[in-house]
Simulated scan of single mutants.
Amino acid sequence: MTRFSHLAPVAIGLSLCLAVHPVMAGTLQDLYSSQTIVNGKYEKNRQSGFKRCLDAVLVRVSGDQRLPAKPEMTALRDKAGTFVASFHYRDRMEGIPNHDDQGTYDRPHNLYCQYKPADIDPVLASLGSRPWPPGQPRPAAERSQHR
């Protein structure tokens, strides 16, 4: 028996705890939120961001990465802003002064969207899906977004 073989079960247990920890750390509010990068705060850019956020939140909540490819998503994306409960921006160049007037309005921003389960769950049902069962581990792709 090697010198460290008695530590193997402990190491495996710790590895499992660390792998599962991000899953449990998220709240329902975190689950029903999404973010993307937009250029400026113009309505056109916001609507484009809402579409990307809708795709992301549907995949996050359901765990089904095939949803954005469904034909029904085209109509849902056209009204993506109606599903957003609240949103806010963060200037990615915060603290960096504007260099000139040409780039002033096109500064990159993070667009954060928050959704309500009561609005998103029926959308999932219309796509033949449902929220990922509570208490189940999140899909690997979703877990990596929490880090």
Rank of each mutant, 00 (worst) to 15 (best):
F4L: 15
A8Y: 12
A8S: 03
V10I: 13
A11E: 12
S15Y: 07
L16I: 12
A19M: 01
V20C: 15
G26E: 11
Y32H: 09
Y32V: 05
S33K: 03
I37A: 12
Y42E: 14
Y42S: 10
E43Y: 03
E43K: 13
K44T: 08
R46H: 06
F50I: 10
F50R: 02
F50N: 01
D55K: 02
A56I: 08
V57D: 02
L58R: 05
A69P: 10
M73C: 05
L76K: 08
D78P: 05
D78I: 08
K79W: 01
A80N: 03
F87R: 06
H88L: 00
Y89D: 03
R90P: 00
D91Q: 13
R92L: 15
D100P: 09
D101R: 02
T104C: 09
Y105C: 01
P108T: 07
H109S: 06
H109R: 08
N110T: 14
N110G: 02
Y112W: 11
Y112C: 02
C113L: 00
C113H: 07
Y115Q: 06
I120K: 03
V123D: 01
V123I: 02
W132Y: 11
A140N: 06
A141Q: 05
A141I: 04
E142I: 04
E142N: 09
S144Y: 10
S144I: 09
H146V: 10
